[in-house]
Amino acid sequence: MEQFKSLTAKVLPLPIKDIDTDMIIPAQFLTSVSREGYGENLFRRLRDQDPQFPLNMPKYKDASIMLTDSNFGCGSSREHAVWAILDAGFKVVISKSFADIFYSNSAKNGLVLVTLPEEIVDDLLLEAKNKELLLSVDLENQQVQNEKQIYPFTYDAFRRHCILNGLDDIDYILSAKSEIADFRTKQSSKQTVSTLVINH
């Protein structure tokens, strides 16, 4: 996983509530066996339907921060949604709230999700619509900043540590190898259903 510490970049405003992962990457693009190449189809249907969809507009070219309304990433568990956002050059998504599985998938890939209070997101959405908005996102100090103001946010300490250092969950889990082995031995001695192993 790539490290992330801080970033100053242009903001792409998507003032839409409940953006689901089918919107982010439609199912027809999920037949690949790779993690790469999804970026060109990020929000494909919305882009095809509406020439004025922000991602189609030249003024938002080079944006690396996505700014959205509430419950971003709901629906399907497809991690392809995170891969598509990263592949299209975005490093941060700021929203009023995020769906659970999307939140977890993002953390595993170093996509930084920032939750800010509703009024602040509404103000920033308006600002980004009317003029070019640059924001600085500092994960280490948990703050978003524009030329006028600093907006603090909180980010789970463990996850922050992993993203700042580019650490993978597998290594952390494997550091408890002996505890895992002990647990499984104990579990199988209990004769409960959890001992189940599929013979084939």
Binding site: V82, K108, D169, Y172, I173, L174
Partner: peptide, 22 residues
Amino acid sequence: FGIGTSEVAHVMSTGCLLQLKP
């Protein structure tokens, strides 16, 4: 519960996940 592909790899390789209690 549903998980993403990275977590599928975690379970495949360790039988475990990192989870915050909902």
